[in-house]
Simulated assay, not measured.
Amino acid sequence: MAVNDGLSIGALAGRTGLAVSAIRYYEAQGLIKPWRNAGGQRRFERADLRKLSFIMIAQQFGFTLPQIKAELDQLPGKRPPTKADWARISESFRDALDQRIETLTKLRENLDGCIGCGCLSLDVCAMYNPVDRAAEKGPGPRYLMGDSPEA
């Protein structure tokens, strides 16, 4: 198959590791847009490999399909995305990813201590979160979410 003949949905599934049904779902959501060859078969651009890979990774990092689609909708429709196009998307995700990295780092470093969740099950909770004062700051694990315990 020549490069410009496009990829079948099966070839796309084989290269990305996605199920054909998942690719069809992403198509139905407008995340990728195949074209039809002379025989009426659905064909995908090779650039769709990167789009689908981006979708898979972005979902793993907690981005929703509407967020992902909003970014993909900014890519050019008539040409494959360039390095600059992907750099712009990367920049738009950078702040959210940095926040997630910070939260994951706090989780890794502080899960064995009081996280301000209100369970009061660890001995250190009585010191860092007496009578669940963290609840005054809102729901959730307040110390992992950025609040600090008052002495």
Rank of each mutant, 00 (worst) to 15 (best):
D85V: 12
K137M: 15
K83G: 12
G140T: 02
S8I: 01
A28F: 10
E45I: 00
Y26I: 05
A84N: 10
A47Q: 04
F44D: 00
A47S: 09
A38K: 13
K137E: 13
Q99H: 15
D85C: 13
W86N: 03
S21T: 06
A96H: 13
I32K: 07
A38H: 13
P34S: 07
N37F: 09
L104N: 11
Q41L: 05
G40K: 11
L65R: 11
T16R: 03
F54D: 00
K33T: 08
E91Y: 14
S121K: 15
R46G: 01
I101H: 12
I101P: 09
T105A: 15
T103E: 01
R100N: 02
E150V: 14
L120V: 03
A135S: 11
L31M: 14
G14A: 03
Q29C: 03
A58M: 10
K69P: 04
Y143R: 01
I32Y: 12
Y143T: 00
V131E: 15
I9D: 00
R108N: 07
W86F: 09
A134G: 00
A135R: 11
P66A: 11
D85I: 12
G40A: 09
M1L: 08
L49C: 00
S8Q: 02
Q59T: 10
Q29K: 04
K78H: 15
A11C: 02
I9R: 04
R15A: 04
E102Q: 15
